[in-house]
């Protein structure tokens, strides 16, 4: 004898219900972003610690892969050289930055602080996006460590991205190579403004796109781009990358080209979060 007669619903009605639910929750999460944070933080608090644990396995696999492709000794030598190179580039950058600070920056923008002196928090990347379409990752520092939304993230001496969501102990970062990302930048030598935007199509060549440069500006390949004073989310003076192959836009008003980021996004494990949000309340009010 059967204990209960089970209620069976045709799967197609379930499908319709779920699809309607998707539309509804999509609208809610788009319109009222804050309402979704409890759900998100529950999921994140369950998943992220597990990711943190497994990530060490991933790193080990990455290392193993490295050994497979190159000889062990060569890797070591390479690492030493890389270290030396990093030190030298940092030193070089520092010198250039100092000189630049003295010469131009202060006069032009009256900035009295450099990104190097800003308070930073080191964080480890514990997981990255599960698909091939976007470029975001989760770091193991959150609101408890003083991280807030819209804080800038750096690695080495270049800009990595921006914090877009904060949980108690985790934060999500969108990198500048993400297709959704846009950064307002300034070209160092000529102080021309430009827009640096991520582009999935260009990513396979290791570059992102830069546009909106004045058509009369004469900029050489290799000119360095830093974040602009005008940006209302990014602190000024953080290096982004180097410009190349500029050409006139189809509109014939501006120039566009490619930008090679300073940070090697394929191999970052550690990042620094600048624990200072750009004070842009006034700007936001004006924009409203």
């Amino acid at each position: 004898m059967r204990k209960k007669t089970k209620i069976t619903i045709d799967p197609k009605y379930i499908l319709v219900i779920i699809l309607l639910f998707c539309v509804l929750i999509g609208i809610i999460s788009y319109r009222f972003e804050d309402k979704m944070t409890p759900i998100r933080s529950v999921v994140e608090n369950v998943i992220a610690p597990m990711q943190k644990g497994i990530n060490t396995v991933g790193k080990r696999i990455a290392e193993q892969r490295k050994y497979f492709t190159t000889l062990q000794t060569e890797v070591k030598k390479n690492e030493q050289l890389q270290e030396q190179l990093n030190e030298l580039t940092i030193e070089n950058k520092q010198l250039r930055q100092n000189q630049y600070e003295l010469d131009n920056f202060r006069k032009l923008y009256q900035v009295d602080e450099q990104y190097a002196n800003l308070p930073k928090v080191a964080a480890r990347i514990i997981s990255s996006d599960p698909d091939n379409w976007s470029n975001t990752f989760i770091i193991d520092k959150g609101a408890e460590d003083g991280i807030k939304k819209n804080m800038n993230v750096m690695a080495g001496e270049g800009l990595v991205g921006i914090v877009i969501r904060v949980n108690n102990s985790y934060a999500k970062v969108r990198s500048i190579i993400d297709d959704d990302s846009e950064v307002y930048g300034t070209i160092l030598d000529s102080s021309e403004n430009c827009i640096v935007s991520g582009d999935l199509e260009l990513m396979k060549n290791g570059v992102i796109s830069v546009s909106g440069i004045d058509k009369n500006a004469e900029i050489e390949d290799g000119a360095e781009v830093v974040t602009s004073q005008l940006s209302y989310k990014y602190l000024p003076g953080i290096p982004i990358g180097y410009i190349r192959d500029l050409e006139k836009d189809t509109s014939n008003v501006t120039q566009k080209g490619y930008l090679t980021p300073i940070v090697d996004f394929s191999s970052i494990n550690m990042v620094f979060v600048i624990t200072e949000v750009k004070a842009s309340n006034e700007l936001e009010e004006i924009l409203k």
């Binding site: 699809l19 639910f21 998707c22 999509g26 999460s29 979704m36 998100r40 999921v43 599960p130």
Partner: peptide, 15 residues
């Protein structure tokens, strides 16, 4: 899972 962890708008990946 994908939406809650990584997407700005919940619902697209579920869909």
């Amino acid at each position: 899972l994908m939406d809650c962890m990584y997407n700005d708008v919940i619902g697209i990946c579920i869909f």
